[in-house]
Amino acid sequence: MTTTGHRTLKQERAVRTRKQVLDTAAELFAERGYAGTSVVDIAERVGMTKGAVYFHFKNKEAMAVAVVEGNYQLWLDILKEVRAEGLDPRETILQLLDRTTEAFIGEPMVQAATRLQSERSLIGAPLPEPYVGWLKMLTDLFEEAGEAGQLKEGVSPRAAAHVVVASFYGVQHVSDVLHRRADLIDRWQELRAITLETVLPRA
């Protein structure tokens, strides 16, 4: 193997290992919270030494930030996936939020990032600002719906985005506190029918 090939394999292995560490950190942050998780806990679960974990992340704060950043990247990936299906604006919004709901149930990265944002006062590093990305994303989508004649007359795209973001995050929080999100799909379907299908009426 050439020196270049060996270097490439080493880099690819480092990327995989970093992802494994980050995924494990997300699992533990979701289960135990920031204060209840140590670097030793993460190292033990991933099957590495603490020093090996520190090779990829300088401290626990850096892992928390990376988990939250990974969560926001996931939302962009879901939107890109939905966009690729060529749906109209109304169906794009509905599919985006349907899949987001599923991610809250099945993705530790999402669960961890949500918990970390609520515990941000305990973390000695600034986390990415919550909600603003969602507000911008949904405002743009509601504007597209308005241009397509799919947004209820008189509804502001910005106001619709604020109501949906606040309602959605409130619903997932209540579901998490009361039922560890076991009923989130049902609660989302209720919210979907009462809010989104009202401001985005079928033609």
Rank of each mutant, 00 (worst) to 15 (best):
L79C: 05
Q95T: 15
R99Q: 11
V68N: 01
W75A: 13
G106M: 05
R90N: 01
R99G: 07
A62M: 10
R90V: 03
G51Q: 03
M109L: 13
A113T: 06
T101V: 09
Y54Q: 06
F55G: 08
I105G: 00
N59T: 03
A112F: 09
F57A: 06
L94P: 01
R90H: 02
A112L: 11
A84N: 12
K50D: 15
K58L: 09
Q95E: 15
V68E: 01
A64N: 03
E102H: 04
A84H: 11
M63D: 06
N59V: 05
Q95V: 11
F55S: 13
E85H: 13
Q95N: 12
Y54H: 10
L79A: 13
E69V: 05
N59D: 15
E81W: 04
K80C: 10
R90G: 02
W75Q: 12
E85F: 07
V67D: 04
R83G: 12
F57K: 02
A103N: 05
A103I: 06
V53Y: 01
N71K: 14
V110C: 06
V82S: 09
L94W: 00
L97C: 08
V110H: 05
F104A: 07
G70M: 04
E91K: 10
E102A: 12
A66M: 01
R99W: 07
K58G: 09
G70A: 08
N71V: 09
L76F: 15
H56T: 05
P108K: 07
A66I: 02
L79E: 12
K60P: 03
A64V: 04
L97Y: 10
G106S: 14
V68S: 01
L79M: 07
E91A: 11
A112S: 12
K58A: 12
A113P: 06
Y72S: 08
E61V: 03
Q111T: 00
I105C: 02
G51Y: 00
E61G: 03
G106A: 11
R99L: 14
Y72F: 14
L94C: 00
L87C: 07
E81G: 06
D88M: 11
A112W: 08
H56G: 05
A103E: 14
A52M: 15
I78M: 01
F104T: 02
E69A: 10
R83N: 15
A103R: 08
E61L: 02
A52L: 14
E91D: 13
I78H: 00
W75C: 05
K58E: 14
T101W: 01
A62S: 13
A113N: 07
M109W: 01
K60W: 01
E69W: 02
M63E: 10
L87Y: 05
I93T: 07
N71T: 12
Y54G: 02
R90F: 00
F57V: 03
M63K: 08
L96C: 07
I105N: 00
R83I: 09
K50N: 14
A62N: 10
M63R: 06
R99Y: 04
K80N: 14
N59Q: 04
Q95Y: 01
A113L: 07
